[in-house]
Structures are given as structure tokens and as C-alpha cells.
Amino acid sequence: MFSIVDYDTGNTRNLKKALDYLNIENELTSDKSKILKAEAVILPGVGAFKAAMSKLEERNLVEVLKQVAKKKTPILGICLGMQLLFDSSQEYGFTNGLGLIAGKVEQIPDKGLKIPQMGWNQNKIIQNSSFDSVKDQYTYFVHSYYANCDIKNTIAAVDYGIKIPSIVQNENVVGMQFHPEKSGSVGLKLLKNFQEMVKTNDFSSN
């Protein structure tokens, strides 16, 4: 059973619909014990970093998610959920994140492009992983902040004035900046790839 962390942020139901469509058994929950027992944990999120972290804290889920990561249960953060995996963010003032992947979340620098980045952008593979199916494919993005992180944790990236990490990974902790649940067949395939990663327990990338 996959747990989709329910912490009252944005539209988590579209993600659930995508998992249901793929017949991946899942439930929306904020129940600690369920999250700790889950086969994999998905952290969605739409909105602002600071508000999202306080909602996780209110539900005592920050420590739970750290424990999940520690016992090597696969975690997939999506959009803002991916950004929360990092050390900190500058959005509306400095806020600590979950610290599961090294890096800082910063505003997309103004290179004359519209912000938020909203639309389909093409992924380039930085290193091979369970998510090679994203190679040269377009996925759907909606965000104003991005993860400034080490290349060793970057699986794929898109060009938006600067190189923006689109898939990040630190062993069992994976993040997708785009919305796989809104990225058509490419996105569904990536959710399947995550499911395979969970089944095989193979977190390797190179």
C-alpha cells in the first residue's frame, strides 16, 4: 500500500486518480502508523513552502517522514513535495525543509522568461536511474522556485534560463519537480517506474 501524505495542501486527488488508474494500491492519509508501515510514501504539494512545512509540523509528520526515509522506505516528493525534501527554502523567508536531499530551494532567477514556469518542458538525462524513460520527454511544470542542488543528486533537468533539476534522487528519496499526474503517458510511465523501483528495492543511479 502506498501512502499519499494528506496534509491539506492543494489538489492531492489528481495524484490519487493517476495511481488508481495505474492500479497502484494507495490511500490518502495523515495517520502516522499507516505512513510508517507504507510500502512507499508519496508527498504531494501545491502552494508555498513555509505554509506546507507548518502543516506537516502541525500533524507531527516531519519526524515521521524523516523516519520513513531512514528506514529506506521509498519516498516520492512531487512539485512542492519535492522541494520539501531539501534542506531549506527562501520562499517567504528562510524555512527549514526535511533535509533528506542536500540543497536549497531558491527563486527561479529572472532571465526574461515568465515566472512561474508553467507548461511543458523537455527533460535531459543527467544520470541514468530507474527514470530513464523521461529522456527527451516533455513533462508539465508549474513552479516559481527550484532546487539548487548537487549534480550528484540530479537525475534529469530542464532548461528554463538556467538548468532546473526536474528529477532528483538520494537513494530511496526521489523528487519530481513536474506533475507526473498531469504529464500524460510520460508521467504515468514515470509513476510506474517509481512503482518498479519500490518493488525491486533498487535505488541505484549513475
Binding site: 489528481n14 486518480k17 493517476a18 488508481d20 488508474y21 508539465y140 499526474e181 498531469k182 504529464s183 500524460g184 503517458s185 508521467g187 504515468l188
Partner: peptide
């Protein structure tokens, strides 16, 4: 639609 179609 959003249960069957996965685009914006």
C-alpha cells in the same frame, strides 16, 4: 475527465 485523462 480527471480520472481518465492526465493533462492540464
Amino acid at each position: 475527465v480527471s480520472s481518465q485523462v492526465f493533462m492540464p
